[in-house]
Amino acid sequence: MSAVTAPVGAPPANPARTVMSWAQRSSWAIGLVGLLAILLVFTKIIQPSYGVAGIQGLGISILPLGFAAVAQAVVVIAGGIDLSIGSMMALTSVIAATLMDGQSAEFGLAVVAGVLVLGLVLGAINGALVVVTRVPDIVVTLAMSFVWAGFALLVRAAPGGAASPWLMNLVIGPFGNPWIPKAAIVLVIVVAVIWIPIARSRMGLSLYAVGSNQLAAFRSGVPIGRTKIVAYALTGLFAAVGGLALTASTSIGTPVPGPYTLESVAAVVLGGVSLAGGRGGVFGPVVAVMVLQIIQNDMTFLSFDPNFALVAQGVILIGVLILGSVLESRRARR
């Protein structure tokens, strides 16, 4: 009966197409890496002395925010958002620094394990509250950011404590070649070790499914509530890693949350993760963090007021979104 004029069938499969479609899907991240390379070259040009020290500084300065961005990316992919990441980082950081202070390396290792589990639990609590109360995730996680930050202050009212020396050694300094900061290696390895197996598993698919289309996911047999809780728990886990990184890179624990929550949202958006959920990955945001940090460094080299870096960050964030919105509406019109 009704004539459907839409073309039926799909283009045949072939390897080149598969590569193409991968490239298409990852075009944003690839573009970011390109931008990163250009920025590095640019930096070298404007600041010929930029070298090992600069790269090492870059590595260490992006570490906590890098993990925060990954944490945010996971939950945003699953269609949520977590405004308590900064607080969870503060809480895990002070707990780690307080417990490790003056203790043996072995004990420090146990603390690290314990803090990671704590991160999972904090995240799972966030997730369970979102699922059970059905209050919008923004509100729940905003409220929980007070709670976790409060606990952090209860643990330690002022910055202090200490990180196990091995933990600091893990992230500070070069890895073999002086050009390769350990921090970058740690960031990539930790994220890869945790995220890649999950992303490849059915659970990973479920995260994307829930973020992409909740009804379709439900009908495909994905347990929505459980998947959301897992997403928040993973976010908690990465936030805990971020907290450890904070302790490791500063050698103390700071109970007051840094700007990581909101900056992680910015990094996620710049990193090509759709705030509507279901699209993007965790590495794009990491590259976005590097890009933002280099821009900040470059502005210093160009003897701009460093505060313009913040302005630039805001303008870039808004600009990217406006660009995305304009492209989207042009595509829709066609």
Partner: peptide, 23 residues
Amino acid sequence: VSVYQEPSLIPDLDIRANLRLTD
């Protein structure tokens, strides 16, 4: 199992992943 009027495939996953999702 039901097939609904609105296809319950996940828009942001490829077909292979959609198949894995539902075993």
